[in-house]
């Protein structure tokens, strides 16, 4: 089985959810606020307790140490957190990851962004930096929670383009959560509405 599969995934009284996302495919999720879209992504990333299982290319989540699962199935939360004072300290990976400079420039940052103070970042800057922080680790699956919520229109298109290219080139499977159906119809091949007891295919045509 190629890509990411959710099998009978249930948590916090929601579910069971079933979904297959092929490698290189982007699936959009929408739904009323509070229905549990974020929690669904968190269950897939295995940071909340859940029943059922997720598979990546046929390998069960439970068969992999949790930190490795989260490196392969990486979630970018809507609100990002930073724990050092300086931006660059969060990107110090001893050469294990890609050099973030290329991505940072594409997302409109200048060369000196690495020395910026975290406390001075705007919400939109945090959101873009958080995306870069995850992308440089080259995960096999991307779980994106409202990834462009605090960005201006121009930057929304840049991010959409960048992510589409990444999915196609790296064969990254992607789940994109958004309230914006128009955006989802642009970025995703299929869009589902998250209900508390399952997923319903949304007609975006």
């Amino acid at each position: 089985m190629d890509g990411l599969s959710l099998v009978d995934l249930s948590f916090l009284g929601n579910g069971p959810y079933g979904l297959n996302v092929q490698s290189g495919e982007c699936v959009g999720l929408t739904g009323r606020s509070g229905v549990g879209k974020t929690q669904l992504l968190r269950a897939v990333a295995d940071v909340i307790a859940h029943k059922g299982d997720c598979f990546l290319n046929g390998t069960s989540c439970l068969a992999v140490p949790p930190q490795e699962w989260r490196r392969m199935v990486a979630m970018v939360p809507a609100e990002s957190f930073w724990w050092y004072d300086i931006v660059g300290d969060h990107f110090d990976s001893n050469g294990k990851h890609d050099d973030p400079i290329v991505l940072l420039e594409k997302l409109g940052f200048s060369q000196d962004v690495m020395s910026w103070q975290i406390s001075r970042l705007s919400t939109g800057e945090r959101q873009r930096l958080s995306l870069v922080r995850t992308l440089i680790t080259r995960p096999k699956v991307l779980l994106l929670d409202e990834p462009t919520a605090s960005l201006d229109k121009k930057m929304v298109h840049v991010v959409e383009g960048l992510l589409a290219k990444r999915c196609a080139q790296d064969k990254t499977a992607c789940i994109w959560v958004s309230h914006d159906l128009e955006q989802l119809s642009r970025v995703a091949e299929r869009v589902f509405r998250v209900e508390s007891d399952g997923l319903a295919l949304e007609d975006t045509q």
Binding site: Q67, R70, R71, M75, E79, F81
Partner: peptide
């Protein structure tokens, strides 16, 4: 108090 930060690090693949 710092649950957001701890969880963020878990999401980034920290043990």
């Amino acid at each position: 108090n710092q649950r957001g930060m701890v969880e963020q690090r878990l999401l980034l693949g920290d043990t």
